[in-house]
Design a protein around this nucleic acid. Structure first.
Lengths: 383, 383
DNA sequence: ACGTCTTCTGAATCTCGGG
DNA sequence: GCCCGAGATTCAGAAGACG
């Protein structure tokens, strides 16, 4: 919505006797960032007035002590007060309350998005099902550059989960721009897993000291997919945990209206300044949707999983001077040496490094087959 | 476990008075597929007897007999909110019941895997958190070849979610083969998103008419990753919803023991035949890459005792910025600082911590030799 | 200007054995 | 259960430093 349209609407709302109280309430908050408690503010909005709600609620991370990287530097933890809850019960009560308030103001065919991690997303998902929302998809945001697991005790937490739900099972006429998404995705229908980098670089809001303004700012590309998938131009999008306003910035860029509720003045101020600077671009949709088509990484264990190589098989180098046993865990063993295809290659050759892909071969019908050839085949299939 | 070992164990269990009742119960079910109700069967197993549980529970709310109302009446397929809540409640009761039974038989440091989709995974996740399980990761199985969304009204459902949880927050010594996974993944740590094809082709069990035996047979590669990540060879893995026995087939192939519980005779029969045909990988290929944490500890003193380092000698760091005197008692002294190789390393570097093994060097013929190299030699001899 | 090397950082429930 | 001390642990990408 243009600034002119915004002004005109607010003018009507406050001056015309023909405008209902409901419309006035909506106009008060439309394209504004309002500081306050989300639930109390949502209760001021008329029922059935919002097309889409995007919510990035506190995750209830329950972090224990400090965490250090292997180089001894400190990890900047999300230790803010707003993420602290006494118990799962307290978190559930909070979750049900805001989901209930959100449901009242959603249009009958409106949809809700919530993002979370394993700390909270099961609570959120169960709550919204209990309240009558109808899950349409869970969507996985795969991070290209997640924070690693520094202590090597778990899988690297490389994704977050979004739930996309209709207001109710009856709300079957929700907006889903299937064809636009498909066209932007090289004519393949959009899947439930989205591969996107986290928010860094120039997009990340920093204060004067160079510190990040918000600990969990989401990338605009993520919000762009959400809005382009589930809203039409001119639709009204509410974000009850507005933070630094990624939802508002993307909404403005894509010609959608937004309502932002945020408890912290500092975040709200940053969001206002940020959105003010956003220029709506007519063709933003196309550019924002294009995902990167990186060559998929195929690790050695994919060859075992695909059946190209069997555990217990022997690999040899091109000149037949070295051999190694393929173990079921996807590692090699050769004499005293064990490790990845690269490490064992380096060890048997007594070199610092070795590209195992172009070093090791299988024996097939008396011929040597480079394992890199299998990788190429897997890549071909994976597209 | 070999067939011979299996037979021997069952023989002992039934004939020797020295075998406890608990051991007898375990031996009865070990490497067997047992038909019956999972919960009732789990209650027959001794507490704390299972290393890992993998569960692929039913989630179809309407069609499962287990999900009848308490009065045995069928849940009606009407879609009003009350009935929805009713069926969720029934599903939650079922979920809590099997998760509780599973938790009793898990070893204190055992872990649980559950796989599901957005229909049920939020219920499962919330339930297991409520019961005291401690979530370690949620893992996303990205399907390379998912079924498309035919109606074009949602995103293609291209993934399923696994939850990996410890029995409790206290169970910190769960098995996680970090180093093996990393080596098999081209020396990059394994992430929480796994890209694998669905179960098709020759792996998919078909009946005589060419129809698939089980509607949701999981790929063996998925189970292989689960077991390679969280079990050791010889561990005992329970699958309470065994289906056509992917868990058992992979367990046998990788040298793990399994217990399979399945309600349907047809699935159990198919699973038995399938597992019977499985050939375990050779023993040598079953051994897994062990990381540094698994290696025996070598005190610094051992280097002095073995004559690699002499008391009175000087150690230096790699960049030649610090030096320390080796004292006869195996401690270092550097300026005002004294203590272990680690403590003095940290003190001279003004860091919180330091791995002395990879910090200090001896000077030999003008070259620096890392003291960790001496440790490696001692470890090699100790074998 | 250009390429290379170094430094920094991101929603994180992040060690383990012995006394 | 607690406390203490040994010693193990990171990937991608942006930005800055340096030659």
């Amino acid at each position: 919505m243009s600034v002119l349209r915004m002004e005109a609407q607010r003018h009507r709302a406050s001056h015309s006797p023909h405008i209902s109280l409901d419309d006035q309430a909506l106009a008060t908050y439309r394209n504004q960032v309002t500081v306050g408690d989300s639930i109390a503010l949502m209760e001021k909005l008329p029922a059935g007035s919002v097309d889409v709600i995007f919510a990035d609620p506190p995750y209830n991370l329950q972090l224990q002590g400090a965490l250090q990287r292997p180089d001894q530097s400190d990890v900047d933890a999300v230790d803010d007060a707003w993420d602290q809850f006494d118990s799962f019960a307290a978190y559930d009560a909070f979750t049900s309350a805001w989901l209930l308030a959100a449901r009242r103001i959603l249009k009958p065919n409106g949809t809700l998005w919530v993002i979370g991690s394993y700390h909270n997303i099961f609570r959120v998902g169960a709550s919204l099902q209990d309240l009558g929302y109808w899950v349409l998809n869970d969507v996985v945001w795969r991070k290209t550059n997640p924070m690693p697991n520094f202590k090597g005790r778990r899988f690297a937490n490389a994704h977050e989960t979004l739930i996309w739900a209709a207001r109710s099972e009856a709300g079957k006429k929700y907006t889903f721009n299937y064809d636009a998404l498909k066209a932007a995705n090289d004519d393949v229908q959009m899947r439930s897993d989205w591969t996107l980098p986290i928010c860094t670089g120039g997009e990340r809001l920093k204060d004067d000291d160079g510190n990040k303004v918000h600990p969990t700012q989401k990338p605009e590309a993520l919000l762009a997919r959400v809005l382009l998938a589930s809203t039409k131009p001119g639709d009204l999008v509410l974000d009850p945990f507005f933070g630094t306003g990624t939802t508002g910035a993307v909404a403005k860029k894509l010609g959608r209206d937004f309502i932002g509720f945020e408890r912290e003045h500092a975040y709200a101020d940053a969001a206002r300044a940020r959105i003010e600077a956003v220029e709506p671009v007519p063709d933003a949709a196309q550019s924002m949707l294009q995902g990167k088509r990186a060559q998929p990484r195929v690790p050695f264990n994919a060859l075992l999983e695909a059946g190209y190589i069997m555990p217990g098989e022997e690999l040899v180098d091109g000149r037949g001077r070295h051999s190694a046993l393929v173990r079921a865990d996807g590692t090699l063993a050769s004499g005293d040496h064990e490790g990845s295809i690269h490490k064992v290659g380096a060890l048997v050759e007594d070199q610092q490094a070795c590209n195992g892909w172009t070093f090791w071969h299988t024996k097939r019908d008396g011929n040597l087959v480079l394992i890199d050839d299998y990788r190429a085949e897997i890549r071909k299939k994976a597209v």
